[in-house]
Design a protein around this nucleic acid. Structure first.
Lengths: 149, 149
DNA sequence: AGCTCATTGTTACCTATACTCACAATGAAC
DNA sequence: GTTCATTGTGAGTATAGGTAACAATGAGCT
């Protein structure tokens, strides 16, 4: 491989890998035929991390996305009965997003799809390598110094 | 960090890192104010790898994208005078894509932007760690067994 | 009380990327 | 020369995200 631009390579690698991950996840998702787009799936998963229903703004922050984007995602999920918008009694500006039973069921299937997709993608790496990769990625995501391993 | 879904974590990490890379690259690009979108930038860079002007289909394959997508990208670049569509004398079906002088100049600035962006992103990693990361990513992209390091 | 300002979600619109399908022009094979 | 494959593109769609303006609400100050 010719690498005349070694320092710009990371972005290209990430792009290609992200695309591969997308393809594989899409395939695993379609096998189960849940009516959920990748971004909606991410919102569902994020939703599961909260002990109590979060606000739209909370989701936007967690997803690193503008609040307006969350509206669209919740619209789609609500139309399919996966989540429910509930008013906050304490503050009438906020709407809290709750998982429905259907949403919870979807989430379980989603996890299965993700797990098998991840297994396929990570197959070429040993357990140790996976850990190293995870640490390196986390370091870059956070942008601070790496824990020297 | 709570990781109830360790096997699905990679996709999330990749997504976040890719987004961070996008943000940083965008910032570095905007400082120079080239009129080029990220995908167009990628096409320009890819173009530079060919010793002689490639066909649309070649670019599509190299970019891992459907040929129709290349049409749109080249349209944009051609409108801005960065590339030129040239007929192939030997086969009138194919159009070859050539870099213009302006495109070449843009490419140079692009490289600078990418280099400084990459420097910012990779700053927390040592040289050795960068190499390890590169190998791991390549392994996952190709999908075959990792070279044991 | 009332006035001002910040927060919250949303309406309306725009951009970027990439996809499918259909098709016209061309070349290749028999 | 009829048939079939290749090549690029028009038309339309989906997904993901962003900006700007705004209405409803809450909070703080006087």
């Amino acid at each position: 491989m010719t690498t005349p631009d070694p320092d710009g390579l990371l972005a290209e690698q990430l792009l290609r890998l992200t695309r591969r991950v997308h393809r594989i996840q899409k395939r695993h998702l379609e096998e189960r035929d849940l009516g959920v787009t990748p971004a909606q799936s991410r919102l569902l998963r994020t939703l599961a991390h909260y002990p109590s229903p979060p606000r739209m703004a909370d989701l936007a922050e967690r997803l690193e996305v503008v609040p307006r984007a969350v509206t669209t995602l919740v619209d789609g999920l609500e139309a399919n009965g996966k989540v429910r918008r509930a008013p906050d009694p304490a503050n009438r500006r906020v709407t809290r997003i709750e998982l429905t039973d259907d949403g919870r069921a979807t989430l379980l299937e989603l996890r299965g799809a993700r797990r098998s997709a991840a297994e396929e993608i990570l197959a070429p790496l040993t357990e140790k390598e996976r850990q190293v990769l995870g640490v390196l990625l986390d370091t870059l995501i956070d942008g601070d110094a790496a824990p020297r391993c």
